[in-house]
């Protein structure tokens, strides 16, 4: 039952997007997300959607995989869209009893919906085309400047990759403990909310103990191999930029310019 959870949902195919340097992808995602919040016209969203469509096509990730992430936000999406739709004051368009839809409400609701969908799709494109390891490598190198002001960038990146690595292990462990307790007659599916919360104790206690044990073992194993933080540590696959990365940066700059122009040009509220 727990195995259905997909985290770090990397989709392994070979494409230009997959081969891009993770730093490029991180920056691109960041700019894309910001641009979605800054935009205030449908023209802008149309451009953003088109850009995303081209990128998805290039990444060779099936669209079905892209939309998977949307399932989890469907409720948030419905709530925010309907709130904006019904509660925005302005010129009235239609009325059902006490519910009324205004021109402004319709506009904001539509924008909100498009924005949320693009947000999720945009960020899942990154996680689908970048392995968790590449991601943390990219973060470590990309945030390297912060090291000068005393932020332990390497340690944070290492913690992230360990955490990601441990997710499947802990999921499997939970599954095993749940089964073992079920074999002793434990019941996780019936009862009220308090009974169900109580039923979690026989899972959580062993799970925590095993997590601590594993953490301890891992720390020991790392020390046994002379790990002592990022200082002087070399990489097996060091990141360096290629031609395609420079092209990608140019594309990002271009996109940024278009966004700024769209925002600056007055009187395009369409």
């Amino acid at each position: 039952m727990l195995r259905d959870i997909t985290l770090g949902q990397y989709y392994p195919v070979d494409s230009v997007i997959h081969r891009l340097d993770p730093r490029v992808k991180l920056l691109a995602t960041l700019i894309y997300l910001i641009s979605l919040f800054v935009m205030n016209s449908f023209t802008g969203y149309l451009i953003a959607a088109l850009v995303l469509a081209v990128l998805v096509k290039l990444s060779r990730v099936p669209f079905r995989f892209m939309t998977r992430g949307l399932k989890s936000i469907i409720i948030v999406l419905l709530i925010s869209v309907s709130f904006n739709l019904f509660l925005t004051p302005g010129t009235e368009l239609v009325r059902f009893g006490f519910l009324r839809i205004t021109r402004e409400g319709l506009r904001i609701a539509l924008m909100m919906g498009v924005r949320l969908i693009l947000l999720v799709l945009g960020s899942s494109l990154m996680t689908l085309t970048t392995t968790p390891n590449q991601l943390t490598d990219g973060l470590e190198k990309g945030l390297g400047i912060l090291k000068r002001v005393g932020v332990p960038v390497h340690e944070i990146a290492m913690m992230m990759s360990i955490a990601l690595r441990f997710i499947p292990i802990l999921v499997e462990e939970t599954d095993k403990i749940m089964k073992a307790q079920q074999a002793r007659g434990a019941d996780f599916e019936s009862g009220n909310i308090i009974q169900r919360a109580k039923a979690m104790v026989p899972i959580l206690v062993p799970l925590f103990i095993s997590a601590f044990r594993r953490a301890n073992d891992l720390a020991m194993a790392m020390e046994a191999r002379c790990y002592r933080g990022g200082e002087g540590r070399t990489k097996m696959k060091p990141l360096h930029y290629e031609r395609r990365d420079r092209i990608a940066y140019t594309v990002i700059e271009l996109y940024l310019v278009i966004c700024v122009i769209l925002r600056m040009v007055p009187g395009v509220p369409v």
Partner: peptide, 27 residues
Amino acid sequence: RSKVGLVFQYPEYQLFEVDVISDVMFG
């Protein structure tokens, strides 16, 4: 499940109670 008792591999990892006797009483 109470008629067909199943002891998993490394079953000690499922212990959770404060003392041994309460843990055995769980079933």
